[in-house]
Write a protein that binds this DNA or RNA. Structure first.
Lengths: 212, 212
DNA sequence: CGCTTCCGTTCGAACGTTCGTTCGATAAGT
DNA sequence: ACTTATCGAACGAACGTTCGAACGGAAGCG
């Protein structure tokens, strides 16, 4: 599946499949070296192509990054819409959303790392295209958060809470898979939802609200 | 204050102050362009020096990044120790810690952005030096989190909770200062602590624990 | 079938640019 | 005179990208 409907003339079935594997290789290289430091020669090597061969499948380095980011956020957004469509309560909808996010991460760790780290590497229209998807994804999660807005304790900011939720579920690419990575992804998602909804503190101690 | 006690022979008072302003300029350039893409020519321009002049104050590009990261985490850790030394309850200790983190961020936004984004850019001993500071900082926060461990509901993981707390307070460099940045930093810190401790959900709805 | 033509695919080699770094010289301060 | 500070100019390496040529299979035609 090509990430964006490009205006390419000829697309053999083998062309598309090789493009996908090229994007996979590029995501791996970008994830390890970082987009700027990564070289097209290394991408070519990882993809089993010559340097010039890469340019048969893409217009350049920037387009590779654009494809990776667009495809990642697009499938993330589609997955979110699917898995929250028939779920009733706001708590369950949020749980499904976080599960979708964490699972997508687990299935495509390299691309996610690239998306989390290189958000500002693109410029112009490619940036705006990806930004629109990001915005749509954020708004979708924000809408779910707003649904469970507490009527009591009205001094909570749903936007800020959503931003912090993104902090939780986007930051863990930094530590997952290195030493402490034994946690199963579904367990992780569940704990993150529980932490976001109910907090970490002991309910018994919650009465003493810290201002003593 | 020079970030690390280097084995430099002569250090005029003016040398140190110019090094600090060079590091400031480098942090700004690294924050905007990213470490790899940023050029020493741009750093020199931002610092009001010629390209060759920069190399009178540092050994190279890597050392600039090392100084920035080391100094940032070092002052972050020192600030944490200071501001939690005479605070009693675990909730207040956590609140003080997050306030310290967020305030440091606000005072040195560029350096923080660099530290959050370029954690894996260094290699060898410089990396290990910074990593030791990062680890010490994480352990200090983890210790605070463990203090408020709930005895009931024992299925919570304090390490995981701390990692997610870091996600909240490290991720907001992504959105702070762009459009929605009207929130005061102390208010932000307070909301983050409240979210981490008590969660976002309405206590009234908390009885229906989502499994209906 | 044999031959030619075309097109998707792949590559080695090179081009022009930018990068981090170094060198030697020139002032300025003590 | 000696050290510090500063700079213009250059070096070698690595980068993204391009070009022209070769290979290979499918289609058109006798």
């Amino acid at each position: 599946m090509p990430p964006a409907a490009s205006l390419r003339r000829k697309r053999t079935p083998s062309f598309d499949s090789k493009l996908v594997s090229l994007l996979d290789a590029a995501a791996r290289v970008f994830a390890v070296d970082g987009y700027d430091k990564a070289s097209m020669r290394r991408v070519a090597g990882e993809a089993g192509l010559s340097l010039a061969g890469v340019y048969h499948y893409c217009a350049g380095k920037e387009e590779l990054l654009y494809y990776i980011q667009f495809h990642t956020f697009d499938s993330l957004l589609r997955g979110l819409e699917e898995c929250t469509a028939n779920v009733a309560g706001p708590r369950q909808r949020l749980a499904a959303a976080v599960r979708n996010h964490v699972r997508h991460f687990g299935e495509n760790m390299a691309a996610f790392k690239v998306c989390a780290r290189e958000l500002e590497a693109l410029r112009g229209k490619p940036y705006r295209d990806v930004h629109a998807l990001r915005r749509a994804y954020f708004d979708a999660l924000h809408a779910i958060v707003k649904e469970l807005r507490p009527k009591s304790g009205a001094h909570r900011d749903s936007w800020l809470a959503t931003a912090n939720l993104f902090g939780m579920i986007n930051w863990f690419y930094q530590w997952y898979g290195a030493g402490r990575g034994k946690v199963a992804l579904d367990v992780l998602a569940e704990q993150q939802v529980a932490l976001f909804l109910d907090g970490y503190a002991d309910p018994a101690l919650r009465a003493i609200r810290g201002h003593a």
